[in-house]
Simulated assay, not measured.
Amino acid sequence: MAPEQDTFPPEVAAAMQGQLPAVAERTVAAIVVEVPSYTEAFTGVMGRKIENAVQLALGAFLELATASGGGDPSRPIGPALEGAYALGRGEARSGRTMDALLAAYRVGARVAWRHMSETAVEAGMPAGSLARFAELVFAYIDQLSAASASGHADQLDSSGRLRRRDLERLAELLLTGAPPYDLTTAAERADWTPPRTLTAVLVPEARARGALGVLDVRTLQAGQDLPGTEPGAERSVLLVPDADGYARAQLVRALTGREAVVGPARPWQQARSSYSRALRALQLDLRPDGDLPVDTELRLSDLVLRADGEALADLRAQVLAPLDGLGPGPREKLVETLRAWLLHHGRREKIATELFVHPQTVRYRMGQLRDLYGDRLEDPQSVLELTLALGAADR
């Protein structure tokens, strides 16, 4: 909304108009001294351009302040507001906050008011009109400040959205295994410095924001449509930089309680490999150890054994065929005893401890198993097949 208009005497308006170049020069000089971040920007050719901009803004103000009541009050101030808006966008692009610009507006308002009011009084403006003149000056500056703040916010919003899209695009290219040249180009476009490695982390979509808050700020997040997942899976994939070696333990701790699945660290352009591993663990429904995430580096045997679920089921049926004639109860006890015997290399005391039974019970059950299997418990190939078949049991 434009400030309310007053009509100034023509001789006052003319006197102030004549002083605009000097006022603009003094305004810029004061800003350079009082707002250090503009010292370099306001010197040389750029300084002269800014002086011209300040002079035009002050001229628009005088035109507004001296306009008759029949004119369009938005016409003289419109270009000035557009310029202030563009200035705010430029400040955001340069990486400066609004603090410096608002400080410059405050300094400019003070300097412009001091010199223009002196000129106005010398030209015959009644002292009683100065208060109204001050209101007009500072209302005008407030509008310019608001327009610049709006431009600054809009630029940050639009540039932030653009960079987020570029980062998401980079993550998608990594997950689909794009060629190295495409990945390097996308990283440059997103202003993202490639790390040595990337580690894929799958988390429920609802927990992604919280997870990002405890991870490296360079972490990439892919969009919702992840390659290899079913629609409605509601999982997000995060690509965490340099989470290998000792940093992996920190990553796992940071993800405690977030239902995460953590893939292996891979060279950054091979992030798809890490994602495929994590996705495979998710598809195989590997269960976490308490609140800790599923660390695929600690579950490699499960991943290998479950790579072909049908083949594993067939192998189990084949190697456990000698137990088919037993009832469910006795069969289950012998299967768990056979598994413990394989994993503990026949050490009876350890087997008994794991099964919470007496060593004599272990001896009795193993006697039954030897009767059922015969020499196969001494055959390396049969032992290997039994170990593979029972190694993934109940995991």
Rank of each mutant, 00 (worst) to 15 (best):
S145L: 02
S117W: 08
A112F: 12
R110E: 09
Q143M: 14
S148G: 01
G151C: 03
S145V: 01
W113R: 05
S117H: 14
T97C: 05
A109C: 06
A131G: 06
A100V: 04
T119Y: 11
T97D: 11
V111P: 04
A146W: 12
I141E: 10
A103P: 09
T119W: 05
A100Q: 03
D142Y: 09
A112H: 10
Q143S: 05
V121T: 14
L101A: 08
R132D: 15
L130N: 09
A104I: 07
A147C: 04
D142C: 02
L102V: 12
A134E: 10
A149D: 09
W113D: 13
W113K: 02
R110M: 10
S117V: 13
A146C: 08
Y105P: 11
S117Q: 10
D142F: 00
L101C: 01
V107D: 07
Y105H: 04
H115C: 00
W113G: 07
A120P: 11
R114Q: 04
F138G: 10
Y140C: 11
F138H: 10
V121H: 05
Q143L: 11
M116T: 15
G95I: 06
Q143W: 02
D142G: 03
R96G: 04
A120M: 02
A146P: 06
A123F: 10
E118L: 01
M98P: 06
E122P: 00
D142K: 01
V137T: 09
I141V: 15
T97F: 05
A134C: 11
H115K: 07
Q143I: 01
S148K: 04
A112Q: 11
A123L: 08
A134G: 11
Q143E: 13
Y105I: 00
A123R: 08
L136Q: 15
H115Y: 03
G151K: 05
G95D: 08
D142S: 00
D99M: 01
A109I: 01
L144W: 10
D99R: 07
M125F: 04
R96H: 14
R110W: 07
Y140P: 05
R132C: 06
Y105T: 02
M125G: 08
M116C: 09
S129L: 13
S150A: 13
P126Q: 12
G124F: 13
I141Y: 12
A127R: 14
R132G: 12
F138M: 02
Y140E: 04
S129V: 12
A147T: 09
A139V: 09
D142V: 01
A103L: 11
